[in-house]
Each structure stands twice: as structure tokens, then as C-alpha cells.
Amino acid sequence: MNMLTETAVEKVLERKMTNSALKMSGTDVCVFYGEKQALHNVNLNIRENTVTALIGPSGCGKSTFLRTLNRMNDTIDSCRVTGKILLDTDDIYDPNIDVVELRARVGMVFQKPNPFPKSIYENIAYGPRIHGLARTRAEFDEIVESSLQRAGLWNEVKDRLQEPGTGLSGGQQQRLCIARAVAVSPEVILMDEPCSALDPIATAKVEELIHELRANFTIVIVTHSMQQAARVSQRTAMFHMGYLVEENDTDKMFTNPDDQRTQDYIMGRFG
């Protein structure tokens, strides 16, 4: 992917954006933690090969919504989800759906880098191994290399693949986690504040990476940084107190939002 020139990337994206198909769509999504309702009737579409940013004040339900998209909420005992979420045409909360398969299609990168206490190589090979994406050593090598390439980490780690992943710097660890998610060839990648634990330089690298990944993946990112949302996303959704307040093109959102609350939030952040 690195080989493609900037214009080539733009051209590919242009073509994909125009017939911008819906990749995922949520209809009347409500989420409860026990008795407490954390999300109220959210209707949000995620477009293919687009970066969608979720913004909003702390506790408004961004992470909660993100986790409904690959059913990570299932791991929380008290959590209950109603409404309908489609991935292409499949209802992901259908009892017949295989959660494991769903999470292979909708991958996730977490706020804090969480490499497994294994070697860098094994961290990347983990997903392909459990999903049977590769058989021979050569095939694994191939996946590991291409994933690290895509995450822009290959040159930094190619000589130390057998060293523990936990020995990398924070920014490298986060890119390792992205590479790990990319290795299972998901269709959608969810990122929950992926840069909040990183310094500005590492952040810039990850942002650049997101920009490139967009050609092949659909990305949903939660962020607290308005600048970051403006830099990396094409669509932005604003949450407030468990409600989806506004969803719009990022350009429009940051220049001329429809909703007063969005305006206040963005202004508050900038001023």
C-alpha cells in the first residue's frame, strides 16, 4: 500500500466514495447498563472506505456505541442492547450470527496499547492463527510482514520480530496493535481513542496510518481531539448525554454545524 502514490490513493478513494455504499448502519440503538440507559435511539450510518469520527463530551456514550458495532459489549455482564445494527446486510445481533466471525470482520483497537506478552511476530500471527488464515510458515511470514508494512512499523521492527511486543515504545505498541487488527483482514476497524496515550509524533504517525488504511478498510474512530477528528475523518458524529446530536460531513461539522450543541462543544474546545 505504501507503494501507491498519494494521487493514486486519492483516485481510488474518489471512486469508492462516489458510490459510497453503507458498510454498517444502526437503527434505534439503545444500550442499557443494568437499569441505566447509556444510549437512546441512535441512528447512525457508517460509510464504506470512510473514516467516521465519534466526538462528544466524556461519558456521552461514544465508547459504548463503538463497542456495540462488534459486540464487545457482550463481555460486560450487565450490558443489554436493543435496536438493529447491520453489517452489509447481516443483522449482527441476530442470535444466529457467530460473534467470533463478526469480530473477525469488525476489528478493534483500544485506547491503551495492549500487546500480548508474546513476541512481535506472535502478536501479529495471533489472529491469522486462530482464524486459520495461513498454514505454512511462509504464509505467516508474508502476513506478518504485510501487516507491519501497512502499520508503518516494518522498518522499525524487522530485525527484532522475536523480541517481546511489550518492549516497544508506546507509539510502536499502538501501531503493533493496529497491525494485529489489520492482519485478520477485517472489513471495519474500530478505534477507541487510539492516540490518547501517545505523544504528538507518534500520534502523527498513527493519523497518517489511518489515512492510508482508509483505502482498504472502513474506519470508525473515537477521539477527544477536534483537530484529530478534522484531520483524519470525512464524516463526524456528535454524541451528547447518550443521544446522537448530529451527523455530518466533517468539513461542514467544523465550519457550520447544524446543531447548537455541536457548535458549543467545538467552540468550547477551540476557544
Binding site: N70, T75, M108, F110, K112, F116, Y126, I130
Partner: peptide, 19 residues
């Protein structure tokens, strides 16, 4: 975080425990 990381990659619970 390690559990979530593994589950988020589509591992089952027992794969997560084992690996």
C-alpha cells in the same frame, strides 16, 4: 485489556484463555 484485545480479534473465550 489483554482479554479484550484477544476477544476483539475474534478469538473465542477458550482460545483467549489458552493462548
Amino acid at each position: 485489556a489483554l482479554r479484550d484485545g484477544s476477544l476483539g480479534l475474534g478469538a473465542t473465550r477458550s482460545e483467549t484463555v489458552k493462548r
